[in-house]
Nucleic acid binder design. Structure first.
Lengths: 159, 159
DNA sequence: CGCAAGTGGTTTCTCATGAAACCATCGCGA
DNA sequence: TCGCGATGGTTTCATGAGAAACCACTTGCG
């Protein structure tokens, strides 16, 4: 907030260090999201993500395995989120005829009804966050983030 | 909303959701950093941050309290990091004459010697991450991150 | 068939993080 | 000087995430 540590050329400050800035921004945003979802729906982020994917037209019913791929969450995280959502009656597991080890997950009626509110909140939040950013900046921000992600991943591989 | 054909064009995907992109990028970067510091110095991120600040010319010796402000880390995190660093002999606590509750922390000789390697690694990593980014993009990225941080914080306040 | 290896899912364990409780000391006012 | 609230620091507790062990079922091969 008061980063008045005037960068005197030689001076190094943590607040000007990219990974730090990235982490600060990311935490601020995800705290905001988490708080909003918690307050309005009692949903945690992983749970919300599952809802979002399951409610998305393309993924009518899918296995946990599929969810881990789409959301890039750990399979344990996916499992836990699904368990909670099932207990709350927002999703249901139907037997998977093709493979007895897994179940197919889909939103219940109540789940769909919540989903109809969940998505607008997500979109509204995104819009609010981007308020004050020019359209070009928004696109550029996404682009930079993606490139940074790719870059970091590739550096992690060969080191 | 779930009319499969109409949705497919304007389809919503988690991977295009800003908070998600942000979190992915941030995690990728901090994982990279964490891994590098772990491998070369056996330092965790909070520990590394403390070292960075203490070794910085301006902050010869300071209290934990001062460190929490500069690093924006939790005071518990600061304390734990200091404890570890002290046990490893990288920093030492000298009595604070001005206030008997706290100690003044400073790098030991060994700590300074590590610090001389720590900082170059940080800077090199930052440079590598930014490889492929035009100078303008780098500045813009920082700017966008800061603005997003401020924006998210302000939304969190009044909601 | 029937066993071995692989895979989806679940549980358990470990560790990191932050909140809250706690202790010691300071500093101010009676 | 005494007492009491505030503050630096430490410890304890609760929560969350990931790793690894584990179980159930499937698949492929003898």
């Amino acid at each position: 907030m008061n980063d008045k540590t005037t960068e005197t050329g030689t001076e190094w400050s943590l607040s000007g260090f990219l990974p730090y800035q990235l982490s600060i921004a990311s935490n601020a945003v995800s705290d905001l999201i988490a708080e909003r979802y918690r307050k309005r729906f009692g949903l945690k982020v992983p749970e919300w993500r599952i809802m979002a994917v399951l409610g998305d037209g393309t993924q009518r019913a899918c296995t946990q395995q599929a969810l881990t791929q789409v959301t890039r969450m750990d399979k344990v995280a996916v499992n836990r989120a699904c368990k909670v959502l099932e207990e709350r009656g927002l999703i249901q597991r139907v037997p998977n005829e093709a493979d007895g080890r897994s179940h197919l997950l889909e939103l219940t009626e109540e789940g769909r009804s919540i989903h109809r509110e969940v998505m607008p909140l997500a979109l509204a939040t995104e819009r609010e966050l981007f308020d004050g950013f020019a359209p070009r900046e928004r696109a550029q921000f996404r682009d930079l983030l993606d490139r940074m992600h790719v870059r970091a991943a590739s550096l992690a591989d060969n080191s």
